[in-house]
């Protein structure tokens, strides 16, 4: 009996060791590229090419960032990305939750059909819409404007779905009380239901922010003038165009760091909402 238990104990220790080994190994695989990215952006160009694996920049220089801000359109791209991302995020949170609330709670004719339509639209793959979206924007005379960057994606079926699911999960009693007090549907929605929806609203805000901040293809089909480039678009151009001589890796990686930072900060602060968002996506 004793030997059996000792054997068992040894096996537990061994499998704990193997478990940690796997976790640490993959943590390195998943995170070390970011370390390389960050450190290379503070290296000199020859140094970045010579010691790509070394996490410590020696010498430590900020030339890449100076250059990113002074010799590229980075300030413009950042500004455009901010405008577009904020507008889309606000729009999605408001419009998706209005629609989600109506689909969950208000009894109106055609509700079921509308919800089926939302589900159908969820299944439309984004890449299929590249050229079609361009056609519509051209037809409406919106092509190459801020409106083109924002309006077509200011509401999304996925967000409507998440909000509908959420509103269905909260008890009706609160709304009924408001209704008995004589509040109309809008008042009930705005001052009673929405405040209760905080967790879902934060989740939606975060996934909207993240997806519109990172969005590349929509920008490709909506605008062409460099004045309207968002950060991912500007970064893509920066990478494909040979900016002067050499590979300019510190510069490109520095620009990529700037594109990563906002989402990284939000990720660290609101991680559990990201997790929730990923799993809501799964319920579709």
């Amino acid at each position: 009996m004793a030997t059996v238990r000792a054997n068992h104990g040894a096996r537990t220790v061994a499998s704990t060791f193997v478990g940690y080994f796997i976790l640490v190994f993959f943590a390195l695989v998943f995170l070390y590229p970011f370390v390389i990215q960050l450190s290379a952006s503070f290296k000199t160009e020859p140094n970045a090419a010579l010691t790509p694996l070394n996490p410590v920049p020696d010498p430590f220089v900020t030339d890449a960032y100076h250059k990113v801000f002074l010799s590229t359109d980075m300030p413009l791209w950042l500004g455009n990305s901010l405008i577009v991302t904020i507008a889309i995020t606000l729009g999605r949170v408001l419009l998706d939750s209005m629609a989600g609330y109506a689909l969950a709670r208000l009894r109106f004719r055609g509700r079921k059909a509308l919800f089926s339509a939302v589900i159908a639209i969820l299944a439309v793959p984004g890449v299929v819409l590249f050229i079609p979206k361009f056609l519509v924007l051209k037809q409406f005379g919106m092509y190459d404007t801020y409106t083109a960057l924002i309006l077509p994606i200011i509401a999304d079926a996925g967000g409507v779905f998440i909000m509908k699911q959420f509103f269905e999960s909260i008890p009706r009693s609160v709304e009924e009380a408001a209704r008995i007090d004589g509040a109309g549907p809008w008042r009930t929605f705005w001052s009673v239901v929405l405040p209760m929806g905080r967790p879902a609203l934060i989740t939606l805000t975060i996934i909207s922010f993240q997806s519109s901040w990172n969005e590349l293809p929509h920008s490709l089909v909506a605008v062409q003038s460099p004045d309207l480039y968002t950060l991912p678009r500007g970064l893509a151009v920066l990478v494909s165009g040979s900016l002067g001589s050499g590979n300019q890796y510190p510069l490109k990686l520095g620009a990529a760091v700037l594109a990563t930072i906002p989402v990284a900060i939000i990720f660290v602060v609101f991680q559990r909402y990201f997790v929730r968002g990923a799993n809501e996506g799964a319920d579709k």
């Binding site: 976790l23 993959f26 943590a27 998943f30 995170l31 590229p33 970011f34 390389i36 990215q37 290379a40 970045a48 090419a49 790509p52 694996l53 993240q210 901040w213 990172n214 590349l216 950060l231 991912p232 970064l235 893509a236 990478v239 590979n247 890796y249 490109k252 990686l253 620009a255 990529a256 760091v257 594109a259 990563t260 989402v263 990284a264 990720f267 991680q271 990201f274 997790v275 990923a278």
Partner: peptide
Amino acid sequence: FFRAAFFFPSVTSSVAISVVFLFIFASSGA
């Protein structure tokens, strides 16, 4: 921590990540 570490790449910009991989897989890269 490990959950966050494995999940983090999924939330970052595909363009930014592509730049990083271009560097990592460069012929004299990492």
